[in-house]
Nucleic acid binder design. Structure first.
Length: 121
RNA sequence: UCAGAGGGUCGGGUGGCCGCGAGGUGCAAACUUCGAGGAAAGUCCGGGCUCCAUUGAAGCAGGAUGCCGGAUAACGUCCGGCGAGGUGGAUGUGAAAAUCUACCUUAGGGAAAGUGCCACAGAGAGUAGACCGCCUUGGUUUCAAGGUAAGGGUGAAAGGGUGUGGUAAGAGCGCACCGCUGGUUUGGCAACAAAGCAGGCAAGGUAAACCCCAUCCGGAGCAAGACCAAAUAGGGAUGGCAUUUGGCGGGCUUUAACGUCGCCAUCCGGGUAGGUCGCUAAAGACGACGGGCAACCGCCGCCUUAGAUGAAUGGUCACCGCUCAGUAAUGAGUACAGAACCCGGCUUAUAGACCCUCUGAUAUA
RNA sequence: CGGGGUGUAGCUCAGUAUGGUCAGAGUUCUCGCCUUGGAAGUGAGAUGUCAGAGGUUCAAACCCUCUUGCCCCGA
């Protein structure tokens, strides 16, 4: 545990629209894994070699502001739990919420996050 | 006790583990305090605040409001009253009308300032009108001329209503009551109400049709705006002189004042990415007392209560509440919904719980 | 956050300036005729809570108010 905390003091965040589009670009070297409760996109960062950045997205289609906020919070909690030891160094991740993200069982959301991260590794 | 209507209040709690944002202390590690709503929503109104150089005066255009009085910073909001309409009850009656009372609703100025519209049907739809009917005269079989708005029929609406006199038949043609209009008196701050007088039936509906009248409104909005500042383009800022004429500068016009377009001197910055401020203590919340029918106001005490910017305020587990189902064990559900400059309202969404008032049913006394 | 537009047959749209006869056109669909059969043509028919609710009016797709869906624009 101490090694992981040494390597990743804090997860960086994707903030601007170009960063999200860079990770989502299918023509480049991005990968993605889709599950019923969430979608994870990953791409190696252009210049930086170490550190992990992540971003969270919830579209208007999945519900009103309360549902979208809840979905993003749950995704953020999943990322905090698993990304530090399952994520690859020097890559960026984007978590996309689906309609079941806010309402589904917490354990299934954790399982599917783990599966998605392992598949992308 | 149950059901319904109206109004008001609240709208889960405790703990463990792991986290987030802001403030404070600290060199740091860390510790500590605080951290969504009644609608934060829709953006439908009204303000504060900021900029538009100045936002002065008059008018036009445009928009909004619209019974009266009050509250308020202001409002299209709120409170009280008036008129109108509806429902229930009582009096009243053969039945009604009418009167009184309780509750609810109400965008409710002006239709004798003017214009427009009133389809279809109907004889006639707004300076009335003769289809049937009724009456008179002529002819006397059909019918023709005239009078007539009582009756029929059409229509959402047929040009006061009921009764009586009158008449060839009728008609406000006369009269009584009701309605209407005008002015008077009384009550009321007023809207308006009541009383009695006069007129003599003219004046249909529609202004959420144009319009008229009264009152109010400059525009844009925190992505306003101010400051620090990579890049890029071009000059920019300050001071002095001149400011006669002219041009430009509010949605438009006129007018008043002003700014700028000119010359000279001095100085060096400029402001996009990014960052900082604006940014939360305010028409503030709570409680007592006093004034007021009330909205609300005054005074005193006490408290400080989010401030993010791809956007914190959480995730998860356990227990307890509450509701429903079930004898029980137990199971299911626990709403609507997330601040983005800040206030006052309106509208819309909302599981469930509690309180007050009224109505009905049942039970008991 | 602020500003604007729009919703009518399964689809694409008229009709709303001035409320009434009027809810209509093209396309689609159904059934005939034509053809050996199909397409095209031709004749007849079907299809609507005028986005929802309330109000004004004798009368509302149209006027007024509120709600809702979709689309566009500004930095």
């Amino acid at each position: 545990m101490s090694e992981t905390t040494q390597t990743f003091h804090k997860l960086g965040r994707l903030r601007t629209r170009p960063e999200f589009l860079f990770v989502a670009n299918r023509n480049g070297r991005s990968k993605y894994a889709a599950h019923p409760t969430l979608i994870v996109q990953m791409r190696k960062h252009a210049t930086r070699e170490t550190g992990i950045n992540c971003g969270f997205t919830a579209t208007k289609k999945i519900g009103n502001a309360v549902v979208r906020n809840r979905a993003k919070r749950r995704l953020r909690e999943c990322a905090r739990s698993y990304l530090s030891h399952l994520g690859q160094d020097g890559h960026d991740y984007v978590f996309i919420a689906r309609q079941t993200t806010a309402t589904c069982d917490w354990q299934t959301l954790c399982d599917q996050t783990q599966k998605a991260l392992l598949r992308l590794k």
